[in-house]
Nucleic acid binder design. Structure first.
Lengths: 147, 147
DNA sequence: ATGTTAATTGAAAATGATTATCATTACCAA
DNA sequence: TTGGTAATGATAATCATTTTCAATTAACAT
């Protein structure tokens, strides 16, 4: 179970940063680490409440804040809004998002440094960070669209 | 005056799409076309009210909506939020944003198609759109930071 | 120029997402 | 086991954005 392992890694990180391990955080981390698509806070809240109907929305927001400060999750940006959340894989990977079903896959962005260097040279800026996301249709949704 | 020209181009586009040219739209378009940095709706509102204290925030939102549907402006995404607006230059240009003063410059993203093709091949997705933004320090802010 | 008409406006209220407050609960080190 | 304290959830508060609606005004025909 890779997911369980990832979840326990996250919990360990939370613990190292001085947080306590609670049942609420267990559930939230479990849902986030096994999600195959980006979630909005409200989506995540709904998923977690299936496991514990008592869990509060505020706790979801607070846990997301901590996970973000630990660099374990990232925001997903879309043209119509940017409230989605997805686990961050190691290294500098970028997201490819299916615009139909929301499925999300990450990929390596090779050779982007060349572009960044060129832009820095042309503009005089120092380029220190970047954000790249791709949008398209996943294999399943392509098949459904064709039929 | 390139800015005036750009502003009148935008107004013409609005007119072609069936909108009326009003003084409120004149002011909003003027501010947007000459802005050198990304603006939040509230920033834009404040700027416009200097020219007409009577102008309402709702009108700003409505005009932004129309300009966006015409493809004349684009959203600017940041890690901490995505409420900013910037004029869109022609073609497929991307934004480079100064994290200190907000100044914004656009650049051409050459050879990105190669990367997109590779990702499409590896994942089975069809890649149909992308979003790329760079963050850094503009020449002025770099100089100030060094002193 | 003038009147007509429908789009546009701004004020105020409504909405929806996120954050702050606070008494209660529960984790965990001693 | 217990005590200190972080964490929780219900509620209220905040902030950005939308909706509503009566009054205004640009565009067009006369």
């Amino acid at each position: 179970m890779q997911n369980q392992t990832l979840a326990s890694q996250w919990l360990l990180s939370l613990q190292k940063s001085g947080c306590r391990i609670t049942s609420a955080r267990n559930i939230i981390v479990e849902e986030l680490t096994c999600a195959q698509r980006a979630l909005e806070p409200a989506d995540l809240y709904a998923l977690c409440r299936k496991k514990d109907p008592h869990l509060g929305l505020v706790t979801v927001y607070r846990t997301l804040e901590q996970l973000e400060s630990l660099g374990l999750i990232q925001r997903v940006h879309r043209s119509d809004g940017c409230h989605m959340i997805m686990r961050k894989n190691d290294g500098h990977e970028h997201l490819l998002i299916c615009t139909s079903c929301g499925k999300t896959v990450s990929f390596q962005g090779d050779h982007l440094e060349l572009l960044f260097d060129r832009v820095a040279l042309e503009t005089g800026f120092s380029v220190e960070d970047h954000m790249l996301q791709l949008f398209g249709l996943c294999p399943e949704c392509r098949a459904n669209a064709q039929e």
